[in-house]
């Protein structure tokens, strides 16, 4: 099967990007260097083509009730223009996907699921919508998404669209949605709009100095902040409590998975924790973690923090913060410890 491409594919190639298969899409993993792209986002502004991500619109008089039922958040608490990061769970409380829910109005919402989960989320939403007056539309193939991230991002947004957005707030400008969201932990925004407009925005922002950033640096940027990667940190069996993301749950409302989570809350369970390598080295997903010479877990994510210049990773582990562990990297045991995320 051939890989899908965003309209910017040729731009990425012309910029010298190395392209890889990501969830069936041919996407840039890096243009010049993961390290320098990473630093550009932390120190200036980077631009990401994340048009592979999904856009599912939920409209109708029951949109608030419906989305409250199928996500961990009570959408009654959302005002027009609010964005909220939350999880979509199955009846066992296991994460199907994480998403940001955009409140365009109290009868129109936008969900942005991960590229690999669009179909599963669509099916799940449709299957659970029988009792609600809603229309659910997958418009992923008609919309682009660009993320503009970094301390300089608000200035560039102002220069480009003469607007500004607060954190987790959205503005609509004609048929474009600009939201104060992203996945890097930096200031910035995401711009979502009709696919045929993507080049205008990309070219303008790159001309103004935004540095193109690939998926490689997107991964190290999110990992430094302890953000989850779908298909890696959760892949079907992990609950929101397992991931240590209880803050995305509003317990005071009924939602799919709530019952299972209430039960889990009363028990002991391993939580996703940060692992910081004290020795020199790079952590990788799958590396084994040992405590008192016993294997206790494996890393779900692992890399090197370009800012800390230390190996960092995530692992489901039932140990206190600051516990000393060893991590097996290519047959050697390296010293590390359990830390709270974010790493920085």
């Amino acid at each position: 099967m051939s890989l899908r491409r965003t309209p910017l594919s040729n731009h990425h190639r012309e910029l010298g990007a190395k392209m890889v298969d990501f969830a069936g899409w041919e996407m840039p993993i890096q243009y010049s260097s993961i390290i320098s792209e990473h630093k550009s986002v932390r120190e200036a502004a980077g631009i990401f083509d994340v048009s592979h991500m999904g856009q599912i619109f939920v409209k109708g008089s029951d949109a608030v009730k419906f989305l409250s039922f199928v996500t961990t958040w009570d959408m009654l608490r959302q005002k027009d223009g609010d964005c909220r990061y939350c999880h979509i769970l199955n009846h066992k409380g296991q994460i199907i996907d994480d998403t940001i829910v955009y409140t365009i109005s109290n009868t129109e919402y936008l969900l942005v699921p991960n590229a690999s989960k669009i179909k599963e989320i669509m099916d799940w939403l449709l299957d659970n919508s029988n009792d609600f007056n809603v229309i659910i539309e997958d418009l992923s193939d008609s919309y682009f998404c660009l993320a503009l991230q970094g301390p300089e991002a608000p200035r560039l947004l102002g220069q480009h669209l003469n607007t500004s957005v607060n954190s987790f707030q959205l503005e609509t400008l004609n048929d474009v949605i600009v939201s104060g969201t992203g996945y890097t932990g930096e200031k910035g925004c995401e711009i979502i709009g009709p696919l045929d407009q993507v080049e205008i925005h990309w070219e303008a922002l790159v001309d103004m100095g935004a540095i193109p950033i690939g998926l490689g640096a997107r991964d190290t940027l999110r990992l430094e902040k302890g953000y989850l990667l779908s298909g890696q940190d959760f892949k079907g069996t992990e609950t929101t409590l397992d991931t240590n993301y209880a803050w995305v749950i509003d317990w005071n409302h009924e939602f799919i998975g709530r019952e299972a989570l209430v039960l889990q809350k009363q028990s002991d369970y391993s939580k996703l924790s940060g692992i910081l390598l004290e020795d020199k080295g790079v952590l990788r997903p799958g590396c084994s973690v040992y405590y008192n010479n016993n294997k206790v877990s494996e890393l779900t994510s692992g890399s090197l923090s370009p800012i800390l210049r230390k190996g960092i990773g995530l692992s489901y582990i039932d140990l206190d913060i600051d516990s000393e562990v060893t991590i097996e990297v290519r047959g050697k045991h390296l010293n590390g410890r359990v830390v709270r995320t974010p790493f920085l």
Partner: peptide
């Protein structure tokens, strides 16, 4: 791409042609 960690062999160690003697790690 960016080499972020290098593991070198010990001085005095011996290798046969084709043995893995060192490791260069990039971010990926």
């Amino acid at each position: 791409s960016d080499v972020v960690f290098v593991e070198l062999p010990e001085i005095g160690s011996k290798y046969s042609e084709g043995d893995a003697m060192a490791v260069a790690e990039s971010v990926k």
